[in-house]
Design a protein around this nucleic acid. Structure first.
Lengths: 234, 234
DNA sequence: ATGACAATTAATGGATACCTTAATGGATTT
DNA sequence: AAATCCATTAAGGTATCCATTAATTGTCAT
């Protein structure tokens, strides 16, 4: 997701339309675990909670359902979908694949100095956060980096696709963050990827990010299996 | 998309809810080019056309918009999105990437005889259609084959994702089918892929499908550039 | 004649009212 | 006592209604 407050993430800015507002509000509550896995609410309850009528709620729910965040079943309202170890694994597999493509495309393009700047900025932020052991800032910078990477692919449809995946990925990431002991030194990985892009070596860039993601994913699943009891999953 | 009539494809089966009906109806009209690129209609017009009120129409439009088939802009109703050469290229890039992942996963799994059967059936259908020079049947069989391939990944989220992409992919494919001179002999490609899966050689399988898709994509874009004037693309 | 502003109109976003349907509990029958 | 069926009711699906806002057109002034 975009690091700024456009798109579907975010800080609560008064949105133009109520549907958007409801959408972002519910999304936030799910992503920041205010409404945890399994939380159920009827349309009417959501209306009262959010102070709007059923129309915007219903329309927001359609979008959220497509995002894979909730399930809407007649007579039982919406339900926040569980995110299992399997889900996380599958999500990371997909993200790996899509990001690999993005990086390959980015490396094959002519990038401007401005493009590199966005990557370098994120890289620097990661280093700073890592030195300060600021786990949250690190995660944010990591997210920014990966976002910019995808943006550089110049494949508009791909960017949208990854964006629409962001919610699920974010949930997976946040879930893991809570039990992740130390930030993996992926800062180095990232620097290498940027280098490969700079050299225009698309095959190598793809290789690198694929390895990076796969390592990340296997770390995550390993952690999950260890801490499965702690997490309120499934 | 599933070759049978479940999911979002399809033959017009009387759906349970009006929203579903409207969704499928509009989707069909777009996919089968009854409403071509650039077609515009106000919500009210859609209501009259389909004989329902605005509510189901609006809810269906949200889904269609997410599918990338239409754009809904206030005061101008919905508009069938153009599909440009660039779009087709980008869509194929993404599909290539996702299918590569799917094949890799499939090859790494233990597949049942039943699984292979679904592939073999599609393969056989392709051969028959090819011998009969039945372009339409060939395209259908090709689609079936690729669908089954993805299904064998056992990555539920991936399957859904590709499925939701189906509409756009289908439009790209149909657009191309009209100007495609002869079915590329991808039947051989397919057979090789199935072989690799059978041997459990996931890397090779991935390589093969990636090559297959990339060749297909470049053929398509080449064709598009030649015939750009024929197509009503934007 | 052209541009700007205002009045009109029409389409959307949102609220509400209505109707259909499914879950629940109780009653009746075996 | 258990099972089945019916009645009740609440939730969701759909239609309609209202308010807001943007497009359009017409008029007036420069």
């Amino acid at each position: 997701m975009k690091p700024d407050n456009k798109g579907s993430n975010g800080r609560k800015q008064p949105k133009k339309t109520l549907v958007d507002h409801v959408y972002h509000e519910i999304q936030n509550r799910i992503l920041y675990n205010i409404w945890g896995t399994g939380y159920q609410a009827l349309e009417q309850e959501l209306c009262e909670e959010l102070g709007v009528s059923r129309t915007p709620v219903r329309e927001a729910l359609i979008r959220l359902q497509r995002d894979g965040l909730v399930n809407v079943v007649p007579r039982h309202g919406m339900r926040v979908l569980p995110i299992s170890a399997t889900d996380i694994q599958q999500i990371y597999q997909i993200l790996t694949s899509l990001e690999s493509l993005a990086v390959e495309l980015a490396a094959a393009r002519e990038l401007s100095a401005r493009d590199y700047k966005s990557l370098d900025t994120a890289l620097k932020a990661m280093k700073i956060a890592q030195d300060a052991s600021d786990l949250k800032a690190w995660a944010q910078a990591d997210e920014d980096f990966h976002y910019h990477l995808v943006a550089l692919s110049a494949n508009r449809i791909l960017i949208e696709l990854v964006d629409s995946f962001w919610g699920r990925a974010q949930r997976a990431r946040l879930t893991m963050l809570s039990i992740r002991n130390n930030p993996i030194n992926s800062t180095q990985d990232h620097a290498k990827i940027v280098d490969a892009i700079r050299r225009g070596d698309s095959a190598r860039a793809r290789e690198l990010i694929e390895g990076h993601r796969k390592r990340g994913a296997s770390d995550l699943t390993e952690l999950m299996e260890k801490h499965l009891n702690i997490l309120q999953l499934s």
